[in-house]
Amino acid sequence: MLRSSLWGTVLLGRALQAVLVSLLVGSLCFALMHSLPGDPAMRIAAGRYGPDAMSLQAAESVRQELGLEQPLLQQYGRALWQLAQFDLGHSLVTGRPILEELQVQLGHSLWLALASLLLSLLGIPLGIIAGARAGGWLDRGSQALAIGVRALPPFVLGLLLMWLFSIQLGWLPPAGFGSWQHLLLPALTLALGLAALSCRVSRDAMAEVQQSAYFTFARHKGLRGLTLIQRHGLRNAAIPVVAYLGVQAVYLIEGVVVVESIFAYPGIGHAMVHAIIARDVPMVQGTVLTLGLLFVLINLLIDAACRWIDPRQGGTR
């Protein structure tokens, strides 16, 4: 009884957050995109026709077609009304319904995110082993590796991997999409950056568990090596690691812009940047809204996972 009402509170809270995010995103996108310097009609025309065919004439016809000369308040009201009806409108650049575009892009993005998350899990055992021997060579080595990976921009990392796996080894296609082989390289590029962090987080969590009273007690009891870590280490170290995965998932979906463009992968980050550059307000709104709601959803899942691992965690902290 208590349990279900607790879940009710959590769900209600997240639902409220979802509504707030939608409202905020709707208003913020509109306000910011319209207060940005530069002529939206010009930007949209350049986005549609490219620099070669872009002209003043083209921009003026875009302005008329989209009603950009209407008063701002009128445009804002229309935008919010559409949002309330779950109507995201049409892209100003492609002219297609936003929902259709998002479906395609979100699907690709989710696949990429999932693959990178799975690959990045490889960092966790490494971190746990490193944490079990804090200060050892493996700990130092993995730290240097983590810093090294974080000191390279993702596009450099991506090119290095392409060169290695496609040119030198010939195992994987360098770019494109459509099969699982195409997914591996961009996922690996992202995963390395993620693994660098999750390796450190799990290492720290493990090192902390090791210094705790119950762990010392277990050791005195005579438990050794893997059994010890398995019985008393893993579950306790898991909470921060799982919680961290949630933050990573968000980073993944939004932080993939550069990786997507270097691997010619049709994801949502790529779409968002193009939409911002082209001042495609409905598209910006759609992509940002999707990412925001995804964030709420992931947090909900992480809440659930944490409670499952450690039922002691209540609603209050």
């Binding site: 809270g13 720290d204 919680a243 947090n299 992480i302 609603g315 209050t316």
Partner: peptide
Amino acid sequence: MNSTVVTSPTTDIHAALAQAARPQPS
């Protein structure tokens, strides 16, 4: 209603991380 509305679990790991990283550098 308590603070679950806005508390995200990420705070846990930060707390854990914070405790773990207590300084005793060699």
